[in-house]
């Protein structure tokens, strides 16, 4: 086991490129360990070192479950768009456990701020490039981590940051699969287009209202009728029509600050943001969508070059 002093760090805090933008609310911040940028003194490589956060449970129930799962999954994944864990390092005391990971310059959220200028939208070709990266990473995760799909994850209701949380989770659906992740990707797609989170709820109820306002209230939907009757819900939601087409303009050259969006792109967006998780497009199918095969070709975003 390598010694922790193999790495030196100027203790500058950095963030990792992850599938979701950096956690937003303070509540979520606590679930992530602190990440440091460090130099590997043996190879001079720059790495990111993440210290596993131990809560008070640690003494009672051993190594934290969420960290175990994250380590387990990251170690078994190998994909160019997914941050890889190089090794685990154990320090002198039991609360010092570190993940040594590849270091990325910035995460998606920082990239959105940098880009070609905070107010300038990405080109459609750049959005496409990033969406393909995210979707292919997700397709990889889904194929590898298939065992995590169902019950193993139903304790993770609180794990997805509120703004990216699928509607069924907000109604405490306990049995779910990779559809919750494709919902999050839909939210990110929208965010890449307007450079701002599309569903910024202030709480769970507000989040639901924002979702139904944007996408319409699910009426005559078998899935939602079943879920609500299963829960004995008597709450009546105000009937809304979908606002998606008005929010995201298709083939528009106007200076709205939105990236150009082809009809194919809009179709993909609405399929990712399907309220019915059973009808939501899978990451794998999304990669086969005409959005990627037709229209402008992908291009590496400016902030990468």
């Amino acid at each position: 086991m390598p010694k922790a002093d193999r790495w030196s760090s100027d203790e500058e805090e950095i963030v990792l490129l992850s599938l979701l933008p950096k956690p937003i609310s303070h509540l979520d911040e606590g679930t992530y360990g602190v990440v440091w940028k460090a130099r590997d003194n043996a190879t001079q490589e720059i790495v990111a070192i993440k210290q596993i956060k131990f809560d008070s449970d640690m003494t009672k129930e051993g190594f934290p479950i969420s960290a175990l799962r994250e380590i387990g999954v990251l170690l078994s994944l190998s994909h160019e768009s997914i941050v890889s864990v190089r090794e685990m390092v154990v320090g002198s005391t039991p609360d010092k456990v570190f993940m040594v990971m590849d270091c990325f310059e910035m995460d998606l959220q920082a990239a959105m701020k940098k880009g070609p200028g905070a107010s300038t939208p990405f080109a459609q070709s750049e959005v496409k490039y990033m969406m393909r990266q995210i979707l292919s990473a997700m397709a990889h995760v889904t194929s590898i981590a298939r065992k995590y799909e169902h019950p193993a994850r139903n304790m993770t209701q609180m794990v997805v940051t509120l703004w990216y949380r699928a509607p069924e989770l907000l109604f405490s659906e306990s049995c779910y699969g990779p559809e919750i992740d494709t919902w999050s990707i839909g939210c990110i797609f929208g965010e890449l287009l307007i450079k701002e989170a599309i569903l910024k709820g202030t709480g769970e109820l507000d989040q639901i209202q924002k979702i139904f306002k944007l996408l319409g209230t699910p009426t005559d939907d078998e899935y939602w009728e079943q879920l609500w009757s299963k829960q004995g819900s008597t709450f009546k939601w105000k009937n809304n029509d979908s606002d998606l087409a008005r929010t995201f303009a298709v083939n528009s050259f106007s200076a709205t600050g939105q990236s150009y969006l082809s009809p194919d792109g809009f179709d993909l967006l609405s399929r990712l943001l399907s309220l019915n998780p059973k009808k939501r497009i899978t990451a794998e199918d999304a990669l086969r969508h005409s959005y990627f095969s037709c229209g402008v070709t992908e291009q590496v975003p400016m902030f990468y070059v």
Partner: peptide, 11 residues
Amino acid sequence: IKVHCSKKISV
């Protein structure tokens, strides 16, 4: 059990 099950079993 910790890694692969949703149900928690205490030490």
